[in-house]
Design a binder for these strands. Structure first.
Length: 708
DNA sequence: ACTGAGACTTAGGTCTAGCGCC
DNA sequence: GGCGCTAGACCTAAGTCTCAGT
């Protein structure tokens, strides 16, 4: 049955429309008016996103090559792999021991994150208690042969057996302003109560930001501020526009200036204090490992600034007190003490979760957590698992693609919508798109929540047929703008889905993320919409690296290729950033450096030439040597110039693209590690220290022939 | 099937230490 | 030794997905 024929399948369609109208009517009550704002906003919003699309060439071609070798090498849970690995590791370790002539070298290697610490830790002291956080940056321990995997050790859902920590660090208490810093209302000095003053300072600190001029921000702020005022203040201060915070603002600017001017000693003192805090509160013990905590400091009070056009911007984020805090730790641990004179809201011992501390935030009423650093075992293992799931998808993605292509022809509207949505998620790496509560957050969408107004259909555009133009705000109100040629069937289906709908109606009115994910679950265990993003990102990196790496290139040029591969992924995932404020300037600087270098090169060449001429006449050793050294100089400068030029290209191409997010969250680190090993690129060129800590498991695990 | 709470990952913006340059 | 810049640390908002309750 063709798409066109289906169009006449009146029964189904009638059913679909009838159903539809009541459904989206109440769902989109006041969307119409929001829609207008959205449009306005959208126009203002950064004109980002070019977006070229990479098709799926990948997968099947590799299928066969993958086979045996990879299978037992990385096939996730198979035990024999571990023996394998352990042997390799043993070998490496031996080499290291032999070659490392002193402490310096050992230390260096540790920092690289490349090697296991030189002490023999795989075997006897595996269960030992770690004291140095440096030493245990190995979240995924390859077990001894008779050892068990962590997941096996812990029955389903159990995340730890022992957990001890010191509790959170609270925000410093409010320090009232000095007497000479004034607040004016309606032109007259006014002394504020401490509570009102504190909230006023939040606003004063933001005065330079554009959003203090925004209507919603001001309205929300003023409403919440008034709640903190005494009744006298409340009756006096009735109009935000009559409030003058400029003196306060100047005071804070002076303060931060003074902070910059602090002496070395003072700065050192602050640094030491921070280190002390980190040492005391920044670590916990989870099952015999000392682990770094990610965010042990409680978020200080302030004014909420959501991203994009957020309806709650400007609201007061209240101060979190010990009485708000739930502590999670094990029963047999030393339970953290609340600050003197306070108590915790609750102390619980839930080892089915990974968080140490939680509280409920007052803006959205959601729960916030203190959890472990990405370098921790528990996060690393989860991360690894994520990529293993994506690799499992690789094995069945062809089947799934064939299936959804079939489903475009289904008699059931629900199935068709699901199939088209899945096609977008797969091809364009869109996010799932959960429904959001209206009026609670900025109006953003993902795949399942796309509305008719977010796409335009062009039967023909710029010489291409069946083009879909996407224009919507996604996560963090980042604009997604893309024109994509699609299969005729998809196009026809979209026309069908859009029939008789208003712009503010859901495009996929019969679909939501729960339906979609349930279906995906049936196709593959553990499959959800976001796995496609991970899979497509990683496979794109692998494929791009293969394509772009030129074996004859030097290291900087290879790194440029890596960054380009990374960039292809960032573009696919629509990871954008605001161009850095100093972008133009720094580009100019770089260009002048390049120009200078070019001149230097010209000079060096001239010198070489004359030296050659000289040598020809004189024919003595000394002048020959001069020629040699001049030659070297030219070469060196050429290299420097090339490095600069590469840097300029890289930076220019990166203007609006953020590489970090994909590197950190979507790219299987083993691909990068393998690439580094294959081409002899030091891993530090690709991953900085933090990243090496986070990906320690991969650095340890992947060999040069690793295939995603 | 639907809902909301809860847990956890993903995300871009901002701040600042420390590096390279003069 | 001081200065300007940038990488990377820090921050916390905003997603995804699961699960329990109805």
């Amino acid at each position: 049955m063709s798409g066109d024929q289906l169009h006449n399948d009146s029964q189904i369609e009638a059913d679909f429309r009838a159903n539809d109208s009541h459904k989206h009517k109440d769902k989109h009550k006041d969307r119409e008016h929001r829609h207008k704002e959205h449009k306005k906003d959208k126009e203002k919003d950064r004109e980002k996103s070019k977006h070229s699309n990479s098709e799926h060439k990948d997968s099947s071609e590799k299928k066969h090559k993958d086979k045996e070798k990879t299978k037992h090498k990385d096939g996730s849970s198979e035990k024999h792999k571990d023996k394998h690995k352990d042997k390799d590791k043993e070998k490496r370790k031996e080499e290291k021991m032999k070659s490392s002539s002193g402490d310096i070298k050992i230390k260096k290697e540790k920092e690289n994150g490349f090697s296991s610490p030189p002490r023999i830790k795989d075997e006897p002291d595996d269960d030992g208690f770690y004291t140095s956080p440096k030493e245990d940056s190995k979240p995924l321990k390859r077990p001894r042969e008779d050892d068990e995997w962590e997941e096996e050790r812990y029955p389903e859902g159990i995340k730890w057996k022992f957990l001890e920590h010191k509790g959170p660090v609270f925000a410093p208490p409010y320090e009232p302003l000095p007497e000479n810093v004034k607040f004016y209302y309606d032109g007259k000095v006014m002394k504020l109560s401490t509570k009102a003053e504190e909230v006023a300072t939040f606003f004063a600190k933001m005065l330079d930001h554009e959003y203090t001029t925004k209507e919603i921000f001001r309205k929300n702020f003023f409403k919440d501020w008034r709640k903190e005022m005494t009744s006298e203040e409340k009756s006096t201060i009735t109009n935000l526009s009559k409030c003058d915070f400029t003196h306060m603002s100047q005071y804070f600017k002076a303060q931060s200036e003074a902070r910059k001017q602090m002496s070395k000693e003072e700065k050192q003192k602050i640094k030491e204090e921070n280190e002390r805090l980190l040492k005391e509160y920044g670590y916990c013990v989870m099952d015999n490992h000392k682990e770094r905590i990610a965010n042990f400091k409680i978020e200080p009070p302030g004014l909420f600034r959501g991203r994009g056009n957020h309806p709650k911007m400007g609201m007061l984020k209240r101060r979190i007190m010990p009485e708000d805090i739930i502590i999670n730790c094990s029963k047999d641990s030393k339970i953290p003490a609340p600050p003197p004179g306070h108590k915790w809201k609750e102390v619980r011992h839930d080892n089915k979760v990974t968080w140490l501390v939680s509280w409920t935030e007052n803006i959205q009423g959601s729960i916030k957590y203190i959890m472990l650093n990405p370098s921790s075992r528990i996060k690393g293992e989860k991360d690894w698992q994520k990529y293993e799931t994506a690799r499992r998808l690789k094995k069945c993605v062809d089947k799934i693609r064939n299936q959804y292509r079939e489903d475009w022809k289904s008699k059931e509207m629900k199935v068709r919508q699901r199939a088209v949505a899945l096609y977008f998620i797969d091809k364009l790496a869109l996010r799932a798109g959960n429904e959001k509560e209206e009026g609670e957050t900025a109006d953003t969408v993902g795949c399942c929540s796309l509305r008719v107004e977010h796409i335009k259909l062009h039967p023909e555009l710029d010489g291409q047929e069946y083009v879909v133009e996407f224009d919507f705000l996604g996560k963090d109100s980042i604009r997604y703008y893309n024109k994509v040629p699609v299969e005729k069937r998809v196009f026809k289906n979209l026309q069908l889905f859009m029939e008789n709908k208003q712009p503010e109606d859901d495009l996929f009115d019969r679909l939501n993320t729960s339906i979609l994910n349930k279906h995906l679950q049936d196709l593959m265990e553990g499959l959800t919409a976001k796995v496609f993003r991970t899979y497509n990102a990683s496979i794109t990196l692998q494929q791009q690296l293969k394509e772009l790496t030129n074996p004859d290139d030097n290291i900087p040029a290879k790194i440029l290729s890596y960054n380009r591969a990374n960039r292809a992924v960032a573009i696919l995932c629509n990871h954008q950033r605001a161009p850095p404020k100093t972008f133009e300037k720094s580009m100019m600087n770089l260009q002048s450096k390049i120009d200078a270098k070019k001149e230097q090169l010209a000079d060096a060449r001239r010198e070489l030439k004359s030296a050659k001429a000289d040598a020809k006449v004189r024919r003595d050793e000394k002048s020959k040597k001069t020629v040699e050294s001049k030659k070297k100089a030219v070469q060196r400068i050429e290299e420097q110039l090339m490095k600069l030029e590469v840097q300029a290209t890289d930076r220019e191409e990166n203007k609006q693209i953020a590489l970090g997010t994909s590197k950190l969250n979507y790219l299987d680190p083993r691909i990068s590690v393998a690439w580094c090993k294959k081409w002899g690129i030091p891993i530090e060129k690709i991953y900085n220290k933090t990243q090496r800590e986070k990906f320690a498991w991969a650095i340890d695990m992947a060999e040069e022939d690793y295939e995603f």
